[in-house]
């Protein structure tokens, strides 16, 4: 049976050549929630993501996903277990078409072994319909044949989301999905996240506190690699230590 907690870290720690970027972080992410990880620049949010998705090896502590210890599982395996991340900087396959971007993700889940170098391209076209459906859900269908590099920034983030969704992740890690976006794009992406979060769990880093308030059930505040506060929006935003951390960071 799957428990209430989808992801848990115990004493998670990361050192870069003596500099401690993540220092004894205990996280508990509830299944089905949208959980925010916030904190000033350099707090270690992205590093936590890198540790959770095994893009970086942890220096100490452990990570439990669905009750399984994944602290020493490979990055690709973790992704195949349903824990899928996006990146802080928009991350597409620039010179593949928008359709191919999503299809290469679908292919991993649905097309059997992708080591079949002797199969023809036709064996992939069965995935086109599914890819188009995903693109339609993020309003990218009209751009399907463009190369991803040609999309405007906001659309690239939408494409990234569609690519992540193609894997039907159980737990989705989004690193600043609205960063650098125009105001109207922020609204659209927020609505989109709300929509796709149904039936799954989302852990997101987000600087836009309006978005956090709107979307997130629970918030963890990170500062200098340690958890400063945790709670719902009202609790966290009323916490003087949190206010101080943000104001302090802004005046630093």
């Amino acid at each position: 049976m799957k428990g209430d907690t989808i992801l848990e870290t115990r004493g998670l720690r990361k050192e870069f050549k003596g500099f401690v970027a993540v220092n004894g972080v205990d996280l508990k992410i509830r299944r089905g929630s949208i959980h925010a990880l916030i904190g000033p620049n350099g707090a270690g949010k992205t590093t936590v993501f890198n540790l959770l998705t095994r893009f970086l090896p942890a220096t100490g502590g452990s990570i439990l996903y669905n009750g399984t210890d994944i602290t020493s599982v490979g990055a690709a395996s973790v992704a195949r277990m349903g824990l899928v991340r996006s990146f802080q900087i928009s991350s597409t396959f620039p010179h593949m078409t928008v359709l191919e971007n999503v299809r290469v993700a679908l292919q991993r889940r649905h097309a059997g072994s992708s080591y079949r170098f002797w199969h023809s391209e036709r064996s992939l076209s069965v995935l086109d319909a599914g890819a188009m459906e995903l693109l339609a859900s993020v309003e990218l269908a009209p751009y399907a044949q463009l190369e991803a590099v040609e999309l405007p920034y906001g659309r690239k983030r939408a494409l990234e989301l569609a690519t992540t969704l193609a894997l039907e992740p159980e737990l989705m890690l989004l690193d600043e999905p609205t960063q650098g976006m125009a105001h109207e794009d922020v609204g659209r992406v927020t609505a989109l996240i709300k929509k796709v979060a149904a039936g799954r769990t989302v852990l997101m880093v987000e600087h836009n506190l309006g978005v956090v308030e709107d979307l997130c059930d629970r918030i963890t505040v990170l500062q200098r690699g340690t958890v400063l506060a945790e709670g719902n929006y009202a609790e966290v935003s009323g916490n003087p230590a949190v206010l101080e951390a943000y104001v302090g960071a802004e005046h630093a």
Binding site: V84, Q107, F117, S120, L167
Partner: peptide, 30 residues
């Protein structure tokens, strides 16, 4: 044939953005 195959698509993805390919669950080294 290799370039157009499912395998070739993954190679292209790795060429374009290795970290992203890894995050999609592809064992890029293999």
């Amino acid at each position: 044939r290799i370039i157009g195959s499912p395998f070739g698509q993954v190679l292209k993805a790795i060429r374009e953005n290795e970290a992203r390919a890894l995050s999609l669950g592809y064992e890029v080294d293999r």
